[in-house]
């Protein structure tokens, strides 16, 4: 079961209406989130494998650390995943 759960990938999704540019996500998940000139996040749109546990953990930290709950993890099926 554990093997099956790790199949596929994930991306971080930002709700731009809730986001207030606190910038915590870029600190907690520097590999997945970059900040634009105004401090708002630009998330990596290439899905990351769910088996990449350190990336998944940092993504979870970013979701939990967002002061506006503007982030969520979206799962992507195996077929859609590139790279």
């Amino acid at each position: 079961m554990g093997v099956r759960r790790r199949a596929g990938g994930f991306t971080l999704a930002v709700n731009p209406i809730l986001c207030d540019g606190f910038g915590h996500c870029a600190e907690l998940a520097p590999d997945l989130v970059h900040l634009d000139e105004w401090g708002y996040p630009i998330v990596e749109r290439t899905p990351v494998a769910l088996s990449n546990l350190s990336a998944l953990e940092s993504a979870r930290f970013a979701v939990r650390g967002c002061p506006r709950q503007a982030l969520r993890i979206e799962r992507v099926a195996e077929e859609e995943r590139r790279a």
Partner: peptide, 22 residues
Amino acid sequence: RAAGRTALSPLAPAPPANRRHA
């Protein structure tokens, strides 16, 4: 603001290569 750097802002200072914070 925690301002970052984008491809559209070439004049903005480059962030350190291995940045822990923004």
